[in-house]
Design a protein around this nucleic acid. Structure first.
Lengths: 247, 247
DNA sequence: GAGTGGTCTAGACCACGAG
DNA sequence: TCGTGGTCTAGACCACTCA
């Protein structure tokens, strides 16, 4: 089926995980040991493990071992709101979200995203959600200080920073339009470290920009969602039906 | 900066491409030659080239060489419609789209997607768009035979199969809602071969489902867009304003 | 300090593509 | 046929984790 030796090995270990022979938090045999078991060299084993890492089945820990991951909650991002599938009782640990905030200066990318002049002051909120020990998703939310200066919510229930817009609304800044730009790319090293994934793991990257009625950007966010546990769902109703009614 | 040797090498070659020292369609020196130039081993060179392949800068051709890619048009998928950025005159070759169709039987995944019973008959349209010699994007569109049997458009201008919905509308089947589900993953071998990308290249995968007013699924599509040249943009207006009017 | 994964070496052999 | 990339080997050396 899979002509490559490392794919066969990955299939075999995947089977051991799915069948329950290897359980969550178990440590795989060391890479030299796996190489012996499958009668291959260590780099071949490592290629197989890389596949499993990219699927979210194992976590590689330098100096420690290759660990079977607990199944994590899927991130569902629906029409501009996070709706992490709180799939009832399927998970023994709930999501926890930590938020840190700091004031920063808008540089090239952020000034373009928020449509403010370079050097403007912004508040940055960094949302890191965890499920048990495992980092789950990463969101960075930016609000120009000229729009509002909010108290940072020390503990949030919105892993992707949705509550910022609610806080803005509470202080009189209404969001009337949100634009999301989604791309698929590999994790950059800093993200990989934070989310405990590999640099060959695909992520769904979301740029979210919220505007008020005057077209002013009131909030922007950069979301990084590991590909193997994230999906974005958008529903559009009655498209292209305005052709007849437009004058 | 980048502690890894292969990242330094990738940076160097990237620079040569961006600066114009290496031009589109140029063949890089062979991998052993590059290894000599950088005083590293061939596998290290190959890791560097893999990075460049994943960024869409080069194309690896087995038995032939590593080729500098022409810059390709970006795929912009906006609110359920493809709006490939025909960026004016920047590209010397236009997109061409070839469509092939065949009648198939709905299996597990497709029957669930289209909400038809397993074994139902479907028409499958495969859209492969190319820019010059390079495959650009891949779309598979499915229409249940119970909904309509359309003439396949032999040449299309919609690289992502949008015209199917127009054809459906022309035959009296109106689409009133479209749901897109987007994920980031690595290309599977079959896709990698068709799109001439690598199996470590991230793709933006889109599942699109279109329904008519009765909730019947009239069309579904599976889109595969190479991550380095695709983005999906969704705009939502006045969200969460119905809270006060709902009883 | 013992054991682990991370990076890299210097080859071998096979499969593919073009002349 | 020959040069290319694709896969794999059998190590070396370093960096990290944990007892």
């Amino acid at each position: 089926m899979a002509g490559n030796r490392y794919e066969e090995i990955a299939d075999d270990i995947r089977q051991e995980i799915r069948s329950g022979m290897l359980k969550a938090d178990d440590r795989l045999p060391s890479e030299p040991r796996l190489a012996k078991r499958y009668a291959v060299s260590v780099p071949t084993v490592r290629e197989a493990l890389e596949l499993l890492q990219n699927e979210g089945l194992i976590e590689k820990r330098h100096g420690h071992g290759n660990i079977v991951r607990r199944p994590l909650e899927r991130i569902v991002y629906t029409n501009g709101r996070s709706a992490a599938a709180y799939s009832g009782s399927a998970f023994d640990t709930a999501l926890s979200v930590t938020v840190t905030s700091s004031e920063i200066t808008a540089e090239d990318r952020l000034s373009a995203l928020l449509r403010v002049t370079r050097g403007s002051r912004l508040t940055e909120y960094v949302y890191l959600s965890r499920q048990g020990e495992s980092p789950h998703s990463l969101a960075r939310v930016y609000v120009p200080c000229s729009v509002a200066v909010l108290d940072p919510p020390p503990v949030s229930v919105s892993p992707l920073g949705d509550d910022i817009r609610d806080l803005l609304a509470a202080s009189g800044v209404e969001t009337t339009a949100t634009t999301e730009r989604l791309t698929a790319r590999l994790a950059v090293p800093a993200e990989a470290k934070r989310l405990r994934i590999g640099t060959s793991t695909p992520v769904l990257a979301v740029e979210r920009v919220s505007m008020d009625a005057t077209g002013r950007v009131v909030e922007a966010a950069l979301l990084v969602l590991p590909g193997h546990r994230a999906e974005a769902v958008f529903t559009t109703r009655s498209p292209a039906k305005e052709l007849e009614t437009t004058g």
